[in-house]
Simulated scan of single mutants.
Amino acid sequence: MNKSSAFTHINEQGNARMVDVSDKEASVRIARAYGEIQMNKEVAEGIKNQTIKKGEVLQVARVAGIMAAKRTFELIPLCHVLALSKCEVSFNWETEQLLSAHCLTKTIGQTGVEMEALTGVNIALLTIYDMCKALDREMKITNVCLLEKSGGKSGHFISTGFKINE
């Protein structure tokens, strides 16, 4: 087996490359990613009551996640530039001090939007950390994963390794 058949981002000489998707059929591509942030009680109450001094944490984190998803190609070297037709970031309190983030991305294109969804959820969680770190430097970001993707040649994927409350 030559190097290029095993890894799509490596050419025959073993050099990194961006995958050529020009021959792929455009299709509706959707991805959902998930992650969690554990925090102390003071931060959780501050977020819920909107009393964090830096502002409305979840609104800022939502916008940050959307902005990051749109700019994934600038952060991950071999990602394609994608025109997202939809990006949603939402949050859910799983317990009193555990907040989950969800990012849904969608496009019509020749390559998937998994990296955009994963980038969106990560940056949303990092924004929460940044806005609240003065109150809790021990916040933990965990369980970031791709929950689902659809579209394209590889078809529909649903994670079996991680169950969440939706």
Rank of each mutant, 00 (worst) to 15 (best):
I30S: 15
G55D: 07
R71M: 11
E96D: 13
K106V: 09
D130V: 05
R17V: 14
V57H: 02
S90P: 09
T95H: 01
I66Q: 00
S90F: 00
S5F: 14
T95Q: 05
L99H: 00
P77A: 08
I141T: 01
G35P: 00
G65V: 01
M139C: 13
A101S: 11
I66G: 01
Q50G: 15
A134E: 12
Q38E: 15
I141D: 00
L135C: 11
M139N: 11
I128S: 04
E88V: 11
S27I: 06
K54V: 02
A31T: 13
L75V: 10
N122A: 12
L125Y: 07
N15W: 15
I141F: 03
F7R: 11
C132K: 10
I76S: 00
A117W: 00
A33E: 00
K3A: 14
P77C: 02
S4A: 15
M67T: 10
L75I: 09
A31F: 06
L125M: 04
D130S: 07
V43P: 09
L98C: 15
S100I: 08
E116I: 01
R32C: 10
D20Y: 08
T127L: 00
S22Q: 09
A26N: 12
A117E: 00
K53D: 11
L75K: 00
L78D: 04
V43E: 11
Y34H: 08
K133Q: 08
D130L: 08
I10C: 04
T8D: 13
A61K: 10
K106Y: 02
P77S: 07
I128K: 11
A26V: 12
I30V: 13
E12T: 09
F91S: 03
M18R: 11
R137W: 14
G35M: 03
A64L: 06
I123W: 06
D136T: 07
E94Y: 00
L58Y: 07
C87I: 02
S5G: 06
T72G: 12
E25H: 11
G65N: 01
H9E: 04
L82R: 08
A117T: 03
L99Q: 01
I30H: 14
V121T: 01
